[in-house]
Amino acid sequence: MTKDGVSEDPRGGDGTVAGGLPDSAKPAIEVHDLTVAYRTQPVLWDIDLSLPEGKLIAIVGPNGAGKSTLLRSILGLVKPVTGWVEVFGAPYRQRRSWVGYVPQRESVDWDFPTSALDVVTMGLYGSLGWLRRPGRKEREIAVSCLDKVGIADLAGRQISQLSGGQQQRVFLARALAQDARLYLMDEPFAGVDATTERAILALLQELRSTGRTVVAVHHDLQTVREYFDHVVLLNMRLVADGPVATTFTNENLQRTYGGRLTVLTQAAEALLGGENPEISNPNV
């Protein structure tokens, strides 16, 4: 059943099988008829979506479009009014250990009395299960994850002593510790410095090269083409989804953002800049 603006099943066009991981014929995420409401206020309407494995996928849309809610629905954190979500062909409950989550950085109190290492170790709580405590092995894994995001030297640092970019890296390291097949990230690039942005991008590309799938809520239209393979355009309803090259078009952006002029200008720039990825690189 195809709803307005839903593109074809992306698996049809691209049959790449992710390296070494089983079950690749299934889409990473299958969303069927999903409607979500907070009280009586609908947030997501009738979403049908199928996201391929092994890609970097951006969820793009204006404020209040339900981007975070879509992520949270996939994680089973919000109860849908109707519809269901499957992750690698099964309900999320059965796929928890395959999924890593990076919430919005502002969602926690960074003055909490804990070290960067402790936060990253939380990524291992799921595999530890009840009662078992993190020990030396977990510590080593956590340090190596901090190392992958380039801040192993800050392991013992209290988290309020970290810069915004470093805090974002801690969250990413925590997700890496989950050693997942699918990563859901809520605005991983929001409010980080240029160095961190490049480091995060490199990390996402490395994840993709090992067959991992990343679905990220993304705000910066200018970098969508440069950073991502696949895009989901969302504004309460699904406007379009598919490979960036064919889906991230002026027409689709207009339909996503409606008549908001400033955003459209930005979108136009993004489209022009599509061939020329240097455009938004503040580096030098």
Binding site: S107, D109, M122, Y125
Partner: peptide, 9 residues
């Protein structure tokens, strides 16, 4: 610290 993350686990 992060109940939402805990729920996702």
């Amino acid at each position: 610290f992060d109940p939402e993350f805990g729920a996702s686990l």
